[in-house]
Design a protein around this nucleic acid. Sequence first.
RNA 1: CGGGGAUUGGCGCAGUUGGCUAGCGCGCCGCGUUUGGGACGCGGAGGUCGGAGGUUCGAGUCCUCUAUCCCCGACCA
Length: 415
Amino acid sequence: MRLSNLYTKTIKNNPSDEQSLNAQLLIRAGFIHKEMAGVYSYLPLGKRVLDNISKIIREEMNNLGCLEVQMSILQPKEIWEITDRWDDKKVDIWFKTKLYNGQELGIGLTHEEPIVDSLKSYIDSYKSLPVYVYQIQNKFRNELRAKSGLLRGREFLMKDLYSFSESQEGHRKFYEKVIKSYQNIYSKLELGDFTYRTYADGGIFSKSFSDEFQTISPIGEDDIYVDEVKKIAINAEIYNDLNLKKLSLDKSSLVLKKGVEVGNTFSLESKYTDALDLYYTDKNGHKKSIIMGCYGIGVSRLMGVIAEVFADSNGLVWPNCIAPFKVYLISVNEDPKSKQKTEVIYKLLTQKNIDVIYDDRDVRAGEKFADADLLGIPYRVVVNQNFEDKQVELKHRKQNKIEFVQFDRLESIIY
RNA sequence: CGGGGAUUGGCGCAGUUGGCUAGCGCGCCGCGUUUGGGACGCGGAGGUCGGAGGUUCGAGUCCUCUAUCCCCGACCA
């Protein structure tokens, strides 16, 4: 993409209506636009990051044999009344609306009820189980207080996976596979070293713990006790002697930290499936309950967390795999032929399917460097006099040193 | 929902004890000089001060109500 083609632009001042680093930088760099408190639009650059994160999650889900669906945002109230989750006194974060005929509708805040309800049309026998189905969609929650930029919004992108198993053993096995898969996702996003599987309250439906994935950051809302050796943690909400014993955690090796919940997995037993009358018939012809699990990852929240934790004083720093572009290509004005040469390189890189932003603006080099840094593009390539020897200047966003490499080698360095 | 802070061109801000044509920086447009870390000069465009009501000869400055945003707390299937 040519920068001259990008309608967004960077700004030097932090917006006055945002305190959190992630929102400040993402707005300054033109990744997101604030519509109202807790509601953001994703601009061309931000959309690419969001899609790249989704892609990584999607790959992992597909590897587990999960199937992606797109569910409706508008929800009929009847199915929610069955599980007693329609009443505002029970679930106080609903956005609701009405048809002209007066029929009440909910704006999807989660999708357990509708997915279970829809499966009734297809699941009746043990032969059709298990079912693993996921969605990556916007969810809407009327939070009393939106905060921290992308970390707690009223409209946000979320991946939710729902599993339906015929037995506890089957469920348990799959559940642990999802945990593994989540760990892969956080590793790929370069958050692995400081994202902890964290035991948390299982909720009213479950005797067991639920699992949260908490990324350590001062901006986090959760207090968690971390065992840095065992690489697990326990949420302060359930921190007590009994639970420590259950989890064989030793008080003396736990450190209190702030965490951002970037994922959550629940065992739901058969609470929703029973309630909504989704059963299956086993080999012996007996009607049996279906064991359900749900597994969420906040995609837009992850974008905020990553922006937040990797940023430096010059701006954003994206991990390679989710950066909106891999290369920020710059021509310099001191060399009169630089622009022509850069055009050539731009075309070559593009042909090789490398995502590159070509800063073709007629501005001074310093401004381009500053923007390259602010946008957090992993590789900066500058074309100057050295190109006569097929050399271009290469700089990694995360490092300060500049190296000169043969143009042909770029492809092997950039991935 | 309780407490605190904020709201003035696109963005960030300043506006004395109410006083005459509401300023500054960034950005934007034009011309010129520059050209490796957000250059500089000159010339422009652009705001009626979140909204409503009130006090006053006179309100961005005072009063009342209200909306929105941020932070802390409560809350977070």
